[in-house]
Simulated assay, not measured.
Amino acid sequence: MRFKTVGLMIMILSGLLLVACSGQSTEEAMYEHMEEAVRLEGDFVDQQQPLGELEQKEQDIYQEISELGMDEYEEIRTLAEQAIASIEERRELTEKEIASIEASKNEFEQIEPLIADLEDEALQETAHEMVEKMEERYQAFLVLHEAYQSSLDYDIALYELLMKEDLEEPEFTEQVDQVNNQYQEVIDANHAFNEATDDFNEKKREFYDQSDLNITYE
């Protein structure tokens, strides 16, 4: 079962007080890019429920297959084909995930040329640290995404084995071990991504607190 990539970039902020008399400040311009990046991750968030539902569907199918005898080959084959179709649906959803993350990252990167315009050196330093944390988070997501794609491949290979009429137990056991090992990699990568997200959100909050922006956290 997939462990949700929770945390995301969902430090929701509201209540920005603008300094209207002198035009948009650098901090305000950075704020707009950063919060647009949050919005662009919305599609990423939206994939979590359907992914979880598909995973549960596949677990139910696997349980059903495990309760069938080898003489019920046609039913096993039908269920395995259903599982593979579900896995391919998950793959499509993960492509939406990474597209959302990349769009968010591209938007966030728009703050980098603005950092030099910040008058406060301490705020500049915090902004640079925040950008570093975002890059670390992005790299952690790429590792997670790759690990999850590999887990989908191993899952499909498992169900393809189950469709073999002459399946031998050692071959099946070896594939199950590969599935489980890859699943552990997904868990570890997910944990690293969540930690990177927490680190980024902490630095983002620090930046807002140091700035002249009046931010209300929801």
Rank of each mutant, 00 (worst) to 15 (best):
K96A: 06
K96M: 11
E97M: 12
E97H: 07
E97K: 08
S100I: 06
E102C: 00
E102N: 10
E102L: 05
E102V: 06
E102I: 02
A103Y: 00
S104N: 08
K105W: 00
K105F: 01
K105I: 00
K105Q: 04
N106V: 05
E107M: 04
E107R: 12
F108W: 08
F108G: 06
E109R: 13
E109M: 11
Q110H: 12
Q110K: 13
I111A: 04
I111L: 06
I111R: 06
I111M: 05
E112V: 14
E112N: 05
E112D: 11
E112M: 09
P113A: 00
P113E: 03
P113N: 01
L114C: 08
I115L: 05
I115H: 03
I115Q: 05
L118E: 03
L118A: 03
L118S: 04
L118R: 01
D120Y: 03
D120S: 09
D120F: 05
E121N: 13
E121F: 08
A122M: 02
A122P: 01
A122I: 01
L123C: 01
L123V: 01
L123K: 02
Q124K: 15
E125A: 10
E125M: 04
T126I: 11
T126R: 05
H128P: 00
H128M: 07
E129V: 14
M130L: 12
V131G: 02
E132Y: 06
E132Q: 14
K133I: 00
K133E: 07
M134V: 00
M134A: 05
E135Y: 01
E135W: 00
E136R: 12
Q139E: 15
Q139P: 02
A140S: 15
A140Q: 11
F141L: 06
F141M: 03
F141N: 08
L142W: 02
V143C: 00
V143N: 10
L144A: 13
H145K: 14
E146H: 04
E146M: 03
A147M: 12
Q149A: 14
Q149T: 12
S150H: 14
S150W: 06
S151L: 13
S151A: 15
L152K: 12
L152M: 15
